[in-house]
């Protein structure tokens, strides 16, 4: 049981959340840089997303005449829900008190809350681009959610817990076993992460003025600080999936005690893991082309089938494990 009344724990959880928010733009810049290198370009500086955010926060916000209060509130709700989701994920250490606030199903709920308001904001001004983005986003997320939960269920069935901290500890304690169910769940979750964070081949974060865009279409009408919050939330979401994948499937290095040394190890470990994941993402985005919208269901079906295989192999092969 996590100690709820531990002031060090709460302070550390707060610090971890701030680190999450501060580090997210860096991860995006890192992926962009590797991608540029792979395409024989120099690419923007690693600080470019920070400069962009700083610029946007300083700019005047412009809203359409037809925009309603939902449009104005949405950036704060999207950002808040994404940040809360980030705060419950064990990044540096397990057994932080925030991990007990929400388990992995609630985590999916937070992301769904953010998406709900993002899609409403897309519909709000009444432009066709916004409606199109919302419609497609809701389709993709509807198909991604069962695949994601199936992958998560495979883990929770063997850990006997939906608490992220407990799942990670379970993986840590059971050592480096090659479990087919984990492998399938990892693959399924990787595909889901690509779809949910709007990366190639499902969506292209670098595109504008194309009928292929999804996320960019929904935030097309935003400007100034509202746009900054939406962009930042998207960056946190990418990092969130990265940390989730890294720490659930490869939790080694994460601090299980709250001492300075182990926390430093945890920090270095997660930075290395995220850097590696960023390279994998950049390479896959370079070699894979974006697919048509109606190919996406097949892609997500594959993710679901992989997760289902993970579940079946858990039931068939790992009974009693």
């Amino acid at each position: 049981m996590v100690d709820f009344l531990n002031p060090t724990g709460w302070a550390l959880a707060l610090l971890q959340t701030l680190l999450f928010a501060a580090g997210a733009p860096l991860l995006v810049a890192w992926v962009k840089r590797i991608k540029s290198r792979l395409q024989n370009r120099r690419g923007p500086s690693l600080l470019q997303p920070y400069r962009d955010l700083h610029k946007l926060f300083g700019k005047e916000a412009v809203m359409a005449h037809t925009a309603s209060p939902v449009f104005r509130a949405a950036p704060y709700i999207v950002f808040g829900a994404t940040l809360i989701a980030a705060s419950v994920i064990p990044m540096l250490a397990v057994e932080l008190p925030t991990a007990a606030i929400a388990d992995v199903i609630v985590l999916v709920g937070f992301l769904a809350l953010a998406r709900f308001f993002l899609a409403l904001a897309g519909m709000d001004v009444g432009t066709s681009f916004g409606g199109m983005g919302s419609s497609r986003e809701m389709l993709i997320s509807a198909l991604a959610e069962p695949a994601m939960l199936m992958a998560v269920f495979t883990l929770t069935m063997s850990a006997h817990s939906t608490n992220l901290s407990s799942v990670i500890e379970h993986v840590l304690n059971s050592g480096l076993l090659l479990r087919p169910s984990f492998l399938f769940a990892l693959l399924g979750l990787l595909l889901v992460a690509v779809a949910e964070t709007g990366r190639i081949p499902v969506d292209n974060p670098a595109t504008h003025l194309e009928l292929t865009m999804v996320h960019e279409a929904m935030i097309l009408e935003y400007s100034g600080r509202h746009l900054a919050l939406m962009e930042w939330a998207a960056q946190i979401k990418l990092m969130l999936y990265g940390v989730l994948l890294a720490n659930i499937f490869l939790p080694w290095g994460i601090a299980s005690t709250l001492s300075a040394g182990s926390l430093l190890t945890g920090l270095i470990a997660i930075v290395v893991k995220l850097a590696l994941l960023g390279v994998i993402l950049a390479v896959s985005e370079t070699v894979v082309a974006k697919m048509r919208l109606f190919r996406v269901p097949a892609f997500l079906n594959l993710a679901f089938m992989l997760s289902l295989l993970g579940m079946l192999s858990h039931v068939i092969l790992e009974v009693g494990a």
Partner: peptide, 25 residues
């Protein structure tokens, strides 16, 4: 999180929101 985002991040002179036609690309 809402309070943090709305009170800490925006600076004094940019609080106002200007209204205009929808951008729509």
């Amino acid at each position: 999180a809402w309070w943090l985002a709305s009170s800490l991040l925006r600076r004094g002179e940019v609080r106002k929101v200007r209204r205009c036609d929808a951008w729509d690309c």
